[in-house]
């Protein structure tokens, strides 16, 4: 039986889609079969970040409404063959996401894959609720910044009250993923530290993703950062987070950029 994981945050722009792509690819590279489901109906972007935007034929809503079957709508990744994507619809609105339709799709995907990763839209409306409804576990993506932490707190409350698991009286596994973290600014006291965020939200830490230009570079070329630049600091942080999701005990560290001799010489010369 698959693990159904929702990547959520409440606030927009904190890195949900980046995280979905990076964690999914890292899990797939570790040999797991993974499907990424984009729930951001009307504003899909996971296809673009995954570099599959030109291969979308059918989407989630087509499958819900019976215009296509799952096999027709799933897009297989060209780089990692155990990774697939189910894109969201770009033209429809979120009302097309029916609870029954979503339940059936999640159930069908659970039979085929080890991991079903749902990329939630921002906000707390229907799309976000549908994305989290069937989840067994949740990754809450948070930036070390007041509005993001507040929204994460709200989402944690929803995960514990509105989801199927919560209604059945079971405990939803929740993990905090801090993204866009700048260790230097945190050390100077100009950015909320990991301890601060953990103390406020009090859920287990899955990982700390350092702020890095490699994340944007990866999305520019349409590849998860764990595939585009696997040795970069954010990719190593995501890969370790994926190992923790698989139940491995890996100590949480903040990876830093590895500077080679060439980088050092080059930087000297430019300066």
């Amino acid at each position: 039986m698959a693990k159904v994981l929702v990547v959520t945050s409440g606030k927009g722009g904190v890195g949900k889609t980046t995280t979905t792509a990076a964690l999914g690819a890292a899990l797939a590279r570790a040999g797991q079969s993974v499907v990424l489901v984009d729930f951001d109906v009307g504003l899909r972007n996971l296809d673009l970040v995954m570099g599959a935007e030109r291969r979308v034929v059918f989407d989630l809503i087509n499958v819900i409404q019976g215009d296509a079957n799952l096999a027709q709508a799933l897009i297989k990744d060209k780089r990692v063959d155990t990774l697939s994507l189910l894109p969201a619809s770009q033209t429809r609105d979120k009302d097309a996401l029916t609870p029954e339709g979503v339940a059936k799709i999640i159930a069908d995907l659970s039979k085929k894959f080890d991991w079903v990763i749902c990329d939630s839209p921002a906000g707390i409306e229907r799309g976000a609720q549908m994305a989290m409804h069937h989840a067994d576990m949740a990754v809450i993506v948070t930036n070390p910044e007041v509005s993001s932490v507040r929204d994460s707190d709200r989402i944690i409350g929803m995960l514990d009250s509105t989801t199927e698991k919560a209604k059945a009286g079971e405990k939803m596994e929740k993990f905090l993923l801090i993204t866009r973290y700048d260790p230097q600014r945190a050390a100077r006291g100009d950015m909320l530290g990991t301890d601060d965020v953990l103390e406020i939200l009090s859920i287990p830490l899955l990982g700390i993703i350092p702020e890095s230009p490699d994340v944007l570079k990866a999305s520019n070329v349409g590849a998860p950062v764990t595939i585009a630049e696997p040795e970069s600091a954010p990719a190593r942080a995501y890969t370790e987070a994926a190992r923790r999701l698989m139940g491995e005990k890996v100590e949480v560290t903040i990876p830093t950029e590895r500077k080679g001799l060439f980088d050092w010489l080059f930087k000297r010369r430019v300066a």
């Binding site: 709200r154 409350g157 406020i200």
Partner: peptide, 25 residues
């Protein structure tokens, strides 16, 4: 004695969320 802003952010959040959790929860 450069004043750092992160402790201010933490304190503001703790007070705000203590109230919001009661209201929403």
């Amino acid at each position: 004695k450069r004043r750092s802003s992160a402790p201010v952010a933490r304190d503001r959040l703790q007070i705000l969320l203590a109230h919001e959790r009661i209201a929403v929860g």
